[in-house]
């Protein structure tokens, strides 16, 4: 009998490198806590590694996300979430005049604020889509909800963001 594919270090490493960021982000979107996101990511993949023999290659992704989800249910006391993002788009244009840079910074802060203020369900779906560029289908699978639910949450997130933006202005 051959060794199970997931138990080979090389295969496992590939899986890890492919999904680690998304798992990390997923937890981060929910908690806004970088350290916790790191811990849970590590724990989730650790569990996959320990149980490599009983998980198929196809279900590895789902397994890791499920583990991360469960760990979060167990771990969280939800405090107010404050997410921080770097914005590559704007940091590229450093030669603009100072006034413009300030404006951009302000806008960026507003966006961060607005995202942090989104209800948790909308926030996670919205960011998985915006930042991780996952399709609706992929998000639905990770969160174990329907594609329609993802659509609804994206719609609501855009709507909420719009309202929050109006208030800030």
């Amino acid at each position: 009998m051959s060794t199970h594919p997931l138990c080979q270090e090389q295969t496992f490493s590939t899986i890890f490198r492919t999904y680690a960021d998304t798992v990390f982000n997923f937890v981060y979107y929910k908690s806004g806590d970088k350290e916790q996101a790191k811990d849970i990511t590590q724990e989730a993949f650790m569990k996959l590694w320990q149980n490599c023999a009983s998980v198929t290659l196809e279900s590895a992704k789902g397994y890791v996300f499920m583990t991360a989800r469960n760990k979060m249910f167990n771990n969280f006391e939800h405090k107010k979430v404050q997410l921080k993002f770097a914005n590559l788009n704007h940091s590229e244009r450093t030669n603009e005049n100072p006034e413009f840079i300030l404006e951009v910074k302000e806008l960026h802060q507003k966006i961060e604020e607005a995202i942090s203020n989104l209800p948790e369900k909308q926030r996670i779906v919205f960011l998985l889509s915006r930042i991780d560029k996952l399709t609706y289908k992929e998000i639905a699978k990770i969160l174990d909800i329907s594609k329609q639910a993802v659509e609804k949450r994206i719609y609501n997130a855009l709507d909420t963001m719009r309202k929050i933006n109006k208030n800030i202005r």
Partner: peptide
């Protein structure tokens, strides 16, 4: 409004972490 939201969230980046270090820790568990 929608365009603004979309454009401004198109290039957001989350905090990074040392993936390779984590991988080594897991493999050596």
């Amino acid at each position: 409004d929608l365009v603004k939201i979309k454009e401004n969230t198109d290039h957001l980046e989350t905090p990074t972490f040392d993936k390779e270090k984590m991988l080594t820790a897991i493999l050596n568990d």
